[in-house]
């Protein structure tokens, strides 16, 4: 379905674990050349690259601390150099940092969340533009969240608002970059069972699960097809500025 991704150069940020790792692996299986960015988890990133390279694919790893936006720019430049250009950027790096009641959120937490989820996403995208506009398949896929649409829960306002920013900037970037032939879209996962939810209290997870009409939590693999779809010009060439929700029917019921 996505055979036009063969040979394309793809950077997936935050790709050592969870959804990012699954997406990077999905691109490799579609024949793309992938740069796997990691921050703290060098070992799993290298393992993933090794397994891709051993099965005949092409993958490189790049370290970088996305709590500082200059490192995001540097990561993009390095990916473009090592892959010989860039066709697709998947802005997956991000985190909740902490769960905290709204009244206890301080500037320090807001700065940490916004530096990582917002500033580095903007910086990485800006750095990617000169490369993506040279591609016939230039595409950016941002990782939004159901929290960006519904406000998340009572203890994640800081994270939900940052993801709301991602949804909005996706639309802005789509308009700004359409003239350069770059499509910009987002995927918005619901409750995906990865390390991201390792610290989520079980009663909250159970409550969330009860709201999902498909009757199960999502897994990282559930997000892969949508990331590939929105990156493939053949499959989604007339879609830009959209947020595709992947949540098993969570927020309607």
């Amino acid at each position: 379905m996505f055979n036009d991704l063969t040979g394309k150069a793809v950077l997936v940020t935050g790709a050592s674990r969870g959804i990012g790792a699954a997406i990077a692996n999905g691109f490799a299986e579609a024949g793309a050349h992938v740069a796997i960015h990691y921050n703290a988890s060098r070992e799993p990133a290298e393992k993933l690259a090794e397994s891709i390279n051993q099965s005949g694919g092409k993958a490189v790893t790049i370290g970088g601390d996305f709590s500082r936006s200059p490192e995001a720019r540097k990561t993009v430049e390095e990916a473009a150099t090592r892959l010989g250009g860039l066709d697709v950027l998947v802005n997956n790096a991000g985190a909740m940092v902490d769960r905290r009641d709204f009244v206890d959120i301080d500037d320090e937490l807001l700065d940490a969340v916004n530096d990582l989820n917002i500033k580095s996403l903007v910086a990485a995208s800006q750095a990617a533009v000169p490369h993506l506009e040279k591609s016939a398949n230039g595409a950016i896929v941002n990782l939004g969240s159901i929290a960006g649409a519904n406000g998340g829960g009572a203890s994640v306002a800081h994270y939900a608002a940052a993801k709301g920013y991602v949804h909005t900037v996706t639309r802005s970037m789509a308009m700004a970059l359409a003239g350069k032939g770059i499509r910009v879209n987002a995927i918005a996962p619901g409750v995906i069972n990865t390390d991201f939810h390792a610290a989520t209290p079980p009663e909250i997870l159970n409550n969330l699960k009860s709201m999902i009409v498909m009757g199960r939590l999502g897994d990282a693999e559930d997000c892969v097809g949508s990331a590939l779809f929105l990156s493939s010009r053949k499959a989604s060439g007339y879609i830009t500025g959209q947020v595709l929700h992947i949540n098993g029917g969570q927020y309607m019921a």
Binding site: V213, S226, I239, Q242, L244, H245, I246, N247, M252
Partner: peptide, 13 residues
Amino acid sequence: EARYITGAVLPVD
């Protein structure tokens, strides 16, 4: 590929 997507409305425009 879209197995966890339901109730979505996707503009193609």
